[in-house]
Design a protein around this nucleic acid. Sequence first.
DNA 1: TCTTACAAGTTGCACTTGCACCTTTTTTAT
DNA 2: ATAAAAAAGGTGCAAGTGCAACTTGTAAGA
Lengths: 210, 210
Amino acid sequence: MNSPFEDLTKFQINKLYDLLGVHIYKFSKSQEILPTIKNGNIIGIILEGSAQIKNIEYNGNEIIIENLETNSVFGTNISLTNNENYEIIAKENTQVVVIDYEKLINPNNLNHNYFNIFLKNLFDITNEKIKEKNERIRVLEKKQIRDKLLEYFEIEYKKSYLKRIYLPCSLKDLADYMGVNRSAMFRELKHLKEDHLIEVKGNRITLLYK
Amino acid sequence: MNSPFEDLTKFQINKLYDLLGVHIYKFSKSQEILPTIKNGNIIGIILEGSAQIKNIEYNGNEIIIENLETNSVFGTNISLTNNENYEIIAKENTQVVVIDYEKLINPNNLNHNYFNIFLKNLFDITNEKIKEKNERIRVLEKKQIRDKLLEYFEIEYKKSYLKRIYLPCSLKDLADYMGVNRSAMFRELKHLKEDHLIEVKGNRITLLYK
DNA sequence: TCTTACAAGTTGCACTTGCACCTTTTTTAT
DNA sequence: ATAAAAAAGGTGCAAGTGCAACTTGTAAGA
């Protein structure tokens, strides 16, 4: 994941902090982040640690909207629709820089080149996110589990052109990612194995048809 | 949809065009856009008209990735994963501004406040896109058609808190949006009507449970 | 070492969905 | 005004999937 501070020196980052009047907050594992930092529209950047954006549905169901790692950018205006019940939970000890969103259009900031680089970095990062969302949508919109799996393999394969795919998560998590029942996915994985299309060993999947 | 030229005067927009060395292209209905404009990484802005980003799968299937209206921003680095077969097709007479992506980090641009405002607008627009993608993902990840429909209604309802939802598309398109078979969706709509949860009249859906 | 979790893996069954194939209605083009 | 095309609407059936309820394997903590 690219950093929003890419191409900026330590010195410039500090100037940026001053200019934007940022606050840095620390959270411990399982702590909720939003109530502490939310005060109008903000942008948050994970400096250290990781967190998870969750949505709580009317029926109590929890959906993971996004995993936030170091350098991830999040915010009330970013990716979060209004009028929904969100929770952002620290997964470990986590440090967050918080920027007032309105300060991004403060005319006093406009003539500093490091501010400009920062904006460009934010733009790049959100574009990267859109790509990830599009990938997931392409998997989700397939009607059958077999097609979802093959689409997922195709997308991963095209990133490296290697027959071996290493899942970044458990198979259970993959089922959630694809929006299907876990055991139904296992059944389909078995069928793909039986058809000699794949081999599965732990979180390593080998594509035999490539 | 916000314009990438929001808060910029006609004069500033022209300065921006100069600074970025943009080109403006015109396309007629059904014409393919990418072959004409693609030459390294670019950002495109629809000035007038509309277009559609499509992906062609190995089996010939066409998937609509995104609908581009006036003021939409698209690009090789934006939302499009590499290594895929894309087509961008004009849906009518369409005018497109094309910006060289590399020029966005050209140091000569960095000290102009209108350039800065432009970057901030691009950031806002991509954030808006992420929200839309997240909404679709929330619908797609529901396992049953009934739940997908109810989730879709919920999301739309929370935008206005009005019991009446006006679909921005045909019911057929809604089925594609939700990644389900059209006639299966019709069947479920019928069930929802029978349960007195909704009323459907053309592209207007009334939520009776709100 | 034993216990406790949790992921992996499996199966039967009921229900849902995709698909093919219709009809009817509405929209668009000539 | 008429024909053609597209969307809306519907139905039977086979196939696919979700769910519940297991077993097995594995890693971590007491």
